[in-house]
Amino acid sequence: MIVSRRETWLGRTMLILLMAVTILPFISLFVTALHPSGTYPSGLEWPESPQWSNFVDAFKVADMGTLLWSSFLIEIAVVPVSLFIATLAGFALGHLRPPGARIILVAFVLGLTLPREGVIVPLYYQMRDLGLLNTRWAIILPLIGLYMPFAVYWMRAHFVNMPEDISEAARIDGASTWQMFWRVHVPLSMPALSSLAILLFLWTWNQFLLAVVLVSDPAQRTMAGALGAFQGQWGTDIPLLCAGSLLILAPTLIVFLVFQRQFVSALLQGSLKG
């Protein structure tokens, strides 16, 4: 493709500008975190003596270890279970195609546009009646349900496009549907599954509304919920808040930078497929 030099120059400038706008808030967060706790630094200004100890203080007051553990427990319950049951359903709807598959699919698709606020009030009373308020289960169980529309839709789209003859071949070898599912389809679905796993991981980690409504103890929340609680308590101490926010962001940022290629492709595909 022929691109004029002027266009390239304009494009590069725009891209750099966009990147600057994207990254500056992070830098401001970092610089502010180094100011003495309790002060109101003005804008982006390198402190006279950087207070690295703010990070230590924030780590202590936010009880980061507990928070990480809590988020980990929620993830470990939500992601595998969601993946598993969504794969079963996706396989059934996309590959086995029982009578009524279309209606079932439409019922799931309906949930794709659902704003969480639409169900949060009944969920609260449901969790209260189950005695699960203020426990991690109050986040885990609804999240699995809320992920089903997307996850089932995603896995079905994957299985619909899997060539029929793979199953034929397996069937000739005398494999049952179940064996075929485990030995043939699941291994072939790894790319789709891992992308879905990344998406579910991120959404769970960043889930805020359920955490804020259903769980009052930050130590039982997701990371985003814990960050909300941290802001609720320390929001008036800007440097400490910035340090705490950075600490809470750090795990996601690290995981993202390591797996960035997978993240980007999962998110792009996720948007298109959804």
């Binding site: 308020l133 203020n134 009052s216 103890d217 308590q233």
Partner: peptide, 18 residues
Amino acid sequence: EDQFAVLTQNAPRVLVDD
């Protein structure tokens, strides 16, 4: 601990459920 506005919003829920 919470800021007063947060505490105000949480009060009815917390008193019953936690």
